[in-house]
C-alpha cells in the first residue's frame, strides 16, 4: 500500500517536473501508438466498409478469420515481424529491426483485425434504409459508403479508440522488435517491465499511471469526436 502511495506521489512529481527521460518515453509511446493507429485506420476503415458492402465468395469465412485474430498474442506478432525484418528475413535488407518503425509495423498488424472487425460490425448496424436513401438521392457507390460510415461514426471512432488502447498497452511486440533501447525504442510498457524486474516499483507505478493518463486523454478526445 505504501509503495502504491509512493508510486502515485512519484508519478505526480515526474509529471509536474517534466522529467526529461520519462517525458521522452511517454512521448515515444504516444507517437508510435498514434502512428500505428492512424495508418491502420487509413486502410482498415475503407477496407472494412468494402468487405461489408461487396458480395464475394468466402465473405463469411473472411469475417470469421478477422474475428479470430482479435485475440492473437502480441508475442506471436512480435516473432513474425522479427523474422520478417531480421537479416535473414525478406525485409532484412531495410535494416529496420529494433527501430520504432518495426514497432509501428507490429502494432499495425496487431490492431488491424480489431479495426477491420469492429468497422464491419459498425457499418452492418446502420439501417439499410440509409443506404437506399443515399442511393435514391443519387449517391455513387463511394458516396454511399461515406454516408454509411458517417452514420456509423460513433462505433467506428470507438473501434479506433479500441485499436489505440491495444497498441499503446502492448508489450510483446515492443520488446521483441524494439528491444527496449534506452532513448530510442523504450516505451512505457517496456520501461515498466524493466523497472519492475529491477525492483524499482515506485517508478513502475508512476509510469503505469502516466500510461493510463495518456489513454484517458485520448479517449476523452475521441469521445468529443464522436459527439460531432
Amino acid at each position: 500500500m505504501v509503495e502504491i502511495w509512493r508510486g502515485l506521489t512519484k508519478a505526480v512529481e515526474l509529471i509536474i517536473s517534466f522529467e526529461p527521460e520519462v517525458m521522452g518515453i511517454a512521448g515515444r509511446s504516444l507517437i508510435i501508438a498514434l502512428t500505428s493507429t492512424l495508418l491502420a485506420s487509413l486502410f482498415c476503415i475503407p477496407l472494412g466498409g468494402l468487405i461489408h458492402f461487396r458480395r464475394f465468395p468466402g465473405k463469411r469465412l473472411v469475417i470469421s478469420l478477422i474475428q479470430t485474430f482479435f485475440s492473437i498474442p502480441t508475442v506471436a506478432i512480435g516473432l513474425f515481424v522479427f523474422v520478417l525484418f531480421s537479416q535473414a528475413g525478406p525485409l532484412g535488407g531495410l535494416n529496420l529491426l529494433f527501430t520504432p518503425t518495426t514497432m509501428v509495423v507490429g502494432q499495425m498488424i496487431l490492431i488491424t483485425p480489431i479495426l477491420l472487425g469492429l468497422t464491419i460490425s459498425a457499418v452492418s448496424g446502420v439501417d439499410k434504409a440509409i443506404l437506399d436513401t443515399a442511393r435514391s438521392l443519387g449517391a455513387s457507390g463511394f458516396q454511399t459508403a461515406i454516408v454509411v460510415l458517417r452514420e456509423a461514426r460513433f462505433a467506428v471512432v470507438a473501434a479506433v479508440g479500441m485499436g489505440f488502447g491495444r497498441a499503446i498497452s502492448e508489450v510483446g511486440i515492443a520488446i521483441m522488435v524494439g528491444m527496449n533501447i534506452r532513448g530510442f525504442t523504450r516505451v512505457l510498457t517496456t520501461a515498466i517491465s524493466l523497472e519492475t524486474s529491477k525492483g524499482n516499483l515506485e517508478l513502475s507505478i508512476a509510469l503505469g499511471i502516466i500510461l493510463i493518463f495518456i489513454a484517458l486523454i485520448i479517449n476523452i478526445l475521441l469521445n468529443r469526436l464522436q459527439q460531432r
Partner: peptide, 30 residues
C-alpha cells in the same frame, strides 16, 4: 438516370445531421 429522379421512402430516413445538411446532401453529390 438515378440522379434525374428522387425517391421518398415510406419510412423516410433523415441523416444524423442538420435539416440544412440533409436537404443539400444530394446537391453536394452532384
Amino acid at each position: 438516370i438515378r440522379r434525374r429522379m428522387a425517391f421518398v421512402l415510406q419510412k423516410p430516413i433523415v441523416f444524423n445531421m442538420s435539416v440544412y445538411d440533409n436537404i443539400t446532401y444530394g446537391l453536394r453529390w452532384r
